[in-house]
Write a protein that binds this DNA or RNA. Sequence first.
DNA 1: ACACAACATTCCATACGT
DNA 2: ACGTATGGAATGTTGTGT
Length: 438
Amino acid sequence: MDFDAMTVTSMSSDPSSSSSSTEISPSPPPDIEKQEVFDSIFKGRKSWKTLKNGEMVWPPKLEAALIEGLELYVPDDSRETRMLGRFPMRNRFISDHIYNKTGERRTPKQVGSRLQQLRDTCAGRKLHVLLAPCKPIPRPRRGARAHDSFKYTNEFRSDSGSPPCSDASSPPVTPTDSAFTDHQRFGGVGPVIFIDILPTGCSQAYDVPDGGASAACSCCPSSPCSNTLGPRHAPRPIQWIDPTITLVSPRIIAAQSRYVVRLHGTVVFVEQTSLTLKELPEDQNDSGGFLYSTPFVPGFWSTIVQAPDPTEYTVTHEVVEDLDDDCGFPVLFNSTYRFRYPVQDLTIQYSQQGSWKPVVEHMNTPVDSSTLLPLESASSSSLFAGLNPYTNAVDASAAYGWPSHPSSATEMPMFYAGGGFDMASAAAHMNDPARYVI
DNA sequence: ACACAACATTCCATACGT
DNA sequence: ACGTATGGAATGTTGTGT
């Protein structure tokens, strides 16, 4: 991706009034989503402040570099990231990126200030995806029993909590509210988890010994396709995915998984599976939870795998507690899974980072190695890395919130969708703050 | 002149190294 | 325990638009 190209044209909000006699406007970044982010910022500006030398503080060129840096930034899987939702060294990374990209220096403090402003002004939903950590939010509780398991009393940080471009007269919208609205927008069934897959025939690139930086995939002639695999986050052939979901509950539960598969919105398959209690590794068991696994729509998985276009399918998943009374069927957790092909342009980011390696090198198995295929890691680090998970993981990421204060972390619900199901684990681990407890 | 937006600065909480 | 580095929220300052 290249935000550098700027053309001199006209634009409605004229920055020249403050800084320059030329009217400038960015040429559209090649990637549609990035363009949307950039446009939302650019068009949302009402004025441009200037430096003493008359230049704009944040001209489009620098703004573009800022966004690009924001996308390229991959947070460490540090305690700070997990517990606080803060991103160590992000501002410095972006600052350096801006300098490398434009030759102009903006301090980390300036970057932080600008990011704060972008959050406050809500420059588009996509930008919030970039700015906000992704955190699946449980649905409102349906029953008293569910209450026991779904503690979610936290406030949310403003990062993800800003109302989506609401006008000033709009009532405050909590992140939970806005998130749930997004849930509804995406089908009303929990967070939407996108599973990045590769087109058939792209699997070879995983074997490229140098990490694939230079190899091209036959199916993606314009870019190194599967070589675009980041070191950890990895789109991959769907058949490589181990369709197992793992969840952590703070208590022993009796529950079922319910799946509904839709093709173009039409229900084509319904299935129910049981949860199996498994042993939770000590290093994952800091919450004293109980690990459950369940196969992911086992009766239909092979059909999805063999489908010409798996992205046509949508799978909704509910974990429903079995109750011995007549109180109904509390839904402890739900989500929607969709498949998608990665954006080719992301390949450039990887190559620019120069750090990618075959994902297999980064395999670790925080949950259950037996459920993992070689390319997948359910570790949080694996999910943060590669691309910016906030960009990649979720068009539904706006549906995710973030705890406002570390002190509330112990109350955070955790859902640990581990196992071989990568994007499920992605969504979960992105939060590890992120785990949902059912 | 005033309101507002853009940007800078300050303050605070936290992580981390010594 | 202390100092340092950092991100982010809060607050302050300044430029822009009307």
